[in-house]
C-alpha cells in the first residue's frame, strides 16, 4: 500500500492489552493455563478485526490520494489518539499475564537457562512469516494484493476491487502487529506507551531489509537482534544506538536496503 503506518505501534499495544486482559480474566475464571496460547492469538484477532477496519474505512480510505508523508502524519495523529483511547479503556495500571511464560518450564544451554516460551515466540514468528509468504505467493487474494500494490490504477481497470484489497491489507497488517503484541505481553508488563519504542525499531528493521521485501524484513530482524546482543555482551556503551548505526551503514552502501525491489523511474 506504500503506507508507512505509525498506528502499527498502536496495534502492537492493543494486541498486548487485549491479550493481557482477556487471558487474565479467563485464567481468573478457571480456564486451564494450557489454553492461554490460543486465547493470546484470539485476542489479537479480535482487536485487529474490530479496530483496523474502523480506522481504514472510517478515516484512511479518504486519504489515499494524499502524499505519502501526509498519510504517515495521519497515522501519527491516529497513534496519538489511540494512546489516550487505550488509557481510557485500560487505565494506566500495568497488566500481567505471566502464566504462559512460566508454564512450559525452561531448559539449559551450556550455563544459561532459557524458558521454552522463547521457542514458542520463534515458532509463532516463523509461522507468521511463512504464512504471509504463502498467502502473497500462492493464493488468489495474495496475488491480487501484489498487483494492487504495484499499480493501483491498472488493477482497478482490470476489475479488481481495490478498496476491498486495501481493507484486507490494512487489517491483515494490523493483525500481525497485534499478534506481535499479544505474544510479547506475557514477558513484559503491559503499560501505556508500549507501542512507541516498537514502531521506530520496526522501521529500522524494514529499512535495513528493504521496503516491501519479506525476506528482507526477516533478515533485517535477525540482524538487528544479533547486533544488539553482540553489543550488549562486548560493547554495552554502544547498545543505545548500534541499531541506527547498522541502519546508516546499510543505507550508505545499499541505498534502498538489502533486498531492494527495483523501481521504474517515471520520466
Amino acid at each position: 500500500m506504500k503506507i508507512v503506518n505509525v498506528t502499527h505501534g498502536s496495534f502492537y499495544a492493543l494486541g498486548a492489552y487485549a491479550a493481557a486482559s482477556i487471558t487474565g480474566a479467563l485464567l481468573a475464571r478457571g480456564m486451564p493455563p494450557s489454553l492461554s496460547y490460543a486465547v493470546l492469538l484470539g485476542s489479537a484477532l479480535l482487536v485487529s478485526v474490530i479496530v483496523a477496519p474502523l480506522i481504514e474505512r472510517g478515516i484512511l480510505r479518504f486519504m489515499y490520494a494524499k502524499d505519502e508523508v501526509v498519510i504517515l502524519l495521519i497515522t501519527y495523529a491516529l497513534f496519538l489518539i489511540l494512546e489516550d483511547v487505550i488509557k481510557m479503556i485500560w487505565g494506566v495500571n500495568p497488566y500481567f499475564i505471566a502464566e504462559p511464560y512460566g508454564l512450559l518450564g525452561s531448559f539449559d544451554v551450556l550455563d544459561l537457562t532459557y524458558p521454552y516460551y522463547n521457542l514458542i515466540l520463534v515458532g509463532v514468528a516463523i509461522a507468521c512469516g511463512a504464512g504471509l509468504a504463502w498467502m502473497l505467493g500462492s493464493t488468489r487474494t495474495g496475488k491480487l494484493l501484489v498487483a494492487v500494490i504495484h499499480d493501483t490504477e491498472v488493477s482497478r481497470a482490470m476489475g479488481i476491487n481495490v478498496d476491498r484489497m486495501y481493507l484486507y491489507t490494512f487489517t491483515f497488517g494490523s493483525l500481525l502487529a497485534a499478534i506481535g503484541g499479544a505474544f510479547t505481553a506475557p514477558t513484559v508488563s503491559v503499560v501505556p506507551a508500549l507501542g512507541v519504542e516498537v514502531i521506530v525499531l520496526s522501521f529500522a528493521v524494514v529499512v535495513i531489509g528493504g521496503l516491501g521485501s519479506l525476506p528482507g524484513a526477516a533478515l533485517g530482524a535477525v540482524m538487528v537482534g544479533l547486533v544488539r546482543s553482540a553489543a550488549i555482551h562486548y560493547l554495552p556503551q554502544a547498545e543505545l544506538f548500534v541499531i541506527y548505526l547498522v541502519m546508516a551503514m546499510v543505507l550508505a552502501f545499499r541505498p534502498r536496503g538489502l533486498f531492494s525491489i527495483a523501481e521504474a523511474r517515471k520520466i
Binding site: F203, L211, Y244, M247, A248, R256, G257
Partner: peptide, 25 residues
Amino acid sequence: ARYRSIFFGLLSLAVSMILYGLLVK
C-alpha cells in the same frame, strides 16, 4: 543528498538517534 523519499527520512532519523545515544552516554 543521494537519498529520496522514505530513505532520506529514515537515514536522517538514524543519524539523529546516533547523536542521542552518544549524548546519553
